[in-house]
Amino acid sequence: MSRLNKIFSQISKQEKRIALYCAIAFAIIATLPLFDQGFYLSISVNIVMYIVLCTAWSLFSGPTHYISLATAAFYGIGTYVVAIGIKDIPYPVLLVMAAIVSGGIAGIVGLATLRLSGVYFVVFTLGLSELIRQIVTWVQTNFSGSSGLYVFTDIREMHVFWQLLGLAVIVYIVGWLINRSRLGFAMQIIGNDETVAKHLGINTAISKILLFMISGAIIGVVGAIMAPRFSYVTPPSAFNPIISFQVVIMALLGGTKRLWGPLLGVIPFTILFDQVGVYFPDQTSIVIGVAFMAIVYLLPNGVLGLIETIKQKFTSSTKKEDPT
């Protein structure tokens, strides 16, 4: 039957097969550090990081169409949780704390802003990152007399890679579970028509806040995992607003209607941004600008939308030949 009605289906054989393939793929990818510890590992860390960030971002922004620029805020909070606590608290506990603090702040922001219209939400989330960054800078320079914090650990690049890969697996499983859940269905309804959603008995505010918190918590953990890679954490590096913009671009260029959509934007763009950063460091801004334009004028539904349109055209043209 139609795949659109699959929300209640048992886990099908096909899905089991896909899960198996994914597991194998992840296992193969996980061996990467055995072959290379230099450039390829480093760019793979970036790719996996953006996969997690963009997928987490899309969990919330995909169905609600709220463009969140709070990625840098949650990421920076995660980084700072580790930077502050690394001397006294075991690292795994810090990861959990990062999730709780980021998720909690996402909850507060959600409570305050999700009743606002789209523009205000965008600007609010951007402002939030800037506000937190300024306050952290101010506190550091006035009370600790330094401009940053050292993060000394024996965590190396490959450990960061494995952690991010593990987190990616978790994000995909969480996303898949949400899509099959009442919450995921509620988000679909809200994305269609929020008024109807309310009159069907959906607490739209709580649903959105819950999803924003899940998304924020995951992004916080990414920041925490990346902290050891910084070795010296400063507010401009932890709360870098460019991350927020890049996540929006990659996720939208990939497409947010499927869980794996952002992947299609992340891989080419991480490589592109990396190359631009190396060869044309002053032109990053123009590339970001052009990418935004491309989203709006060329690929409004992302690469994913393009693929699905082509697929549809293909199936409808084959249907035409079939005289039924």
């Binding site: 659109l4 009605n5 679909q188 309804i189 269609n192 069907l200």
Partner: peptide
């Protein structure tokens, strides 16, 4: 709800 099927529209209720 335009992006849902007829059945899903009713299920939503």
């Amino acid at each position: 709800l335009p992006s849902l099927t007829a059945l899903q529209n009713v299920i939503a209720g």
